[in-house]
Design a protein around this nucleic acid. Sequence first.
DNA 1: ACAAATGCCTACCTAATCTATAGAGATAGG
DNA 2: CCTATCTCTATAGATTAGGTAGGCATTTGT
Lengths: 154, 154
Amino acid sequence: MISKKTKYALKALGYLAEHSTGEPILISELAKEENIPRKFLEAILVSLRKGGILKSKIGKGGGYMLAVPPTNITIGRIVGILEGGFALVECLNDNNVEVVCVECGDPTCCGIRLVMGDVKKAIDSVFESTTLADMVERSELARQHKSKIVDFSI
Amino acid sequence: MISKKTKYALKALGYLAEHSTGEPILISELAKEENIPRKFLEAILVSLRKGGILKSKIGKGGGYMLAVPPTNITIGRIVGILEGGFALVECLNDNNVEVVCVECGDPTCCGIRLVMGDVKKAIDSVFESTTLADMVERSELARQHKSKIVDFSI
DNA sequence: ACAAATGCCTACCTAATCTATAGAGATAGG
DNA sequence: CCTATCTCTATAGATTAGGTAGGCATTTGT
């Protein structure tokens, strides 16, 4: 299960991608529009900034902007920043290569590790091939599709 | 990240699959051999029994056995029982179809939901195509392979 | 019938993590 | 200098994960 933190991050980034005009967007606007607790969001945005996805401007007229075009931001990168590297078992964590599960015994022969390695590959392949832009676009398409159906039904 | 509970379950089931002689195996043996806290394991085994994977025998000469051949037990089923249906977002949970994330707004148009649906498909495809028997076999093969290498190096 | 071996059940505890909040501080613009 | 804004540190509450304790129920062998 992804955390609320990650969900909020994805929502906030989606909003930024959709409403990007070159001008910074306020935390308070993001919080209000996407229904995210203001202070909680602050912390999330800081993480994303430190992760290189956002840039900020302090002071009057300040706010947040994407630091990278949304086509270059993979979902995997976002999740990685918020969840601290997504893995199913400690010993397969991207960040902490040296960490070994105590349960593994011999990691090279641990069946769990072998299977979860496959799962991780499957997850990563989606995460790395899907960008923030894709996510926004799919959402938009779904919305259009739905409104068409509504039109017909009226 | 899968929980220790799930890891313990996989280890215990692996042991049962490997040492299955038709005779029940004691909780205490499982706990000792696989290094799992005894009482914690009890609870896990009960879940697995209720999930239809194990059967038990009470009283002297009792213990646990697989209720199904290991070739018919998918990893997905095991994880499902222990984690209560593996999902990345609430609204994609197998068990609670009606649960919707408050964050989704309109679930049919939620970009996060759409993307995580893809991820879930990817995970499930591995989970459903890998059995307990596969896991044990891969572990065994890895062990053999390793011992060969060691032989050569001596 | 009884004792021993075994799983079953309920309740509980602790520590970690997740979610959220508060408030003072730093910085920029006008 | 004042205001709007992000930044940082600390903390509090809720939930979950991981683990423990003890007594109950059932079966088997004698």
